[in-house]
Amino acid sequence: MTNAIEAEGLIKKYGDVVALDGLDLEVAEGTVMGLLGPNGAGKTTTVRILTTLLVPDAGRATVVGHDVVSDARALRRVIGLSGQNAAVDEHLTGFENLDMVGRLYHLGRTRSRERAHELLERFDLVEAGGRPAKGYSGGMRRRLDLAAALVAEPPVLFLDEPTTGLDPRGRLGMWDVIADLVRGGTTLLLTTQYLEEADRLADKIAVIDHGTVIAQGTADELKAQVGGERIEFTLTDAGQIGAACAALASLGSGAARTDASARRVTLPVDGGAAVLVAAIRELDAAGIAVQDVGLRRPTLDDVFLSLTGHAAEIEAEQADDEPDTGQQDSSQQDSSQQKEVASR
């Protein structure tokens, strides 16, 4: 499969601040790549370089074979961009906005108008199309902005945080629209702070932090890097922790980990709910009282926090040997795990 987007060793500095620190990225044609990272990780800078808005200090990048610097004008013909702060002209109507963008893509007068009508219909803006965008809701503006990015039916689309600032309903609506769009074979680079969004929309996810890609893969691959399923028990009596470990020993796929202060035993398992039932029986038979129990699968939240949240805090906080037990403990995870993931 050929790559629609390729970036190699991108570096961008703003004064002393390093926004991109040697970022590499490949996005295969017709796939959705999610760039996931906290604020200031370099997501927007990456998009701005790939859409020719910024010139990188070093490194090279191409979109559908066009170099972002030397071939910028031709590159702009094959991309659509929908930015972070819905860049529609609020004094123009929805129709006028789309018509103007069509004219600037040089679609011609007739085709621009046709296309504007088509897109208003597709994005459920027919009624609002004759009103200035000033009166639109946040969700409507986003849809109009996305429609503007699609005017020339570009083969490659960049969406920079397409749902930031939308209410949950608006976000769900936007997801449907985007999912629908990529079914048509458009290559999409999407940036987001929401794991759920990347999980739902992206074929592949690149986690970026401090201007580099620190982990990459499908959502499942990333989850696997954090670890498999585990059962978490919270006991009524901390004194029974030892007994609990003994009772559970044969059921785990690895050694149980314990946390006396939280009266907690965490057991890595294969086999999910069936093991959970067996484990509860064993504890019951051994007379160990359990206050709370749950089967946990790693989420992208775990991945995200273990990769970025931890990395951000490790300098200030002495990392201890607390193993990965999910969200609550992720700020104290072992640095070796992070290194291991980063080295892949």
């Binding site: 701005r48 859409t51 020719t52 808005l53 004008r73 031709a74 702009r76 013909r77 991309i79 961009l81 930015g83 972070q84 702060n85 819905a86 860049a87 529609v88 002209d89 609020e90 963008v101 600037l104 893509y105 040089h106 503007a148």
Partner: peptide, 17 residues
């Protein structure tokens, strides 16, 4: 400030326009 220039700059239009 409103990002409209960003949109224009991402379009294949004449930079002087």
């Amino acid at each position: 400030q409103k990002g409209i220039i960003d949109r224009f700059r991402s379009l294949p239009m004449a930079p002087s326009a």
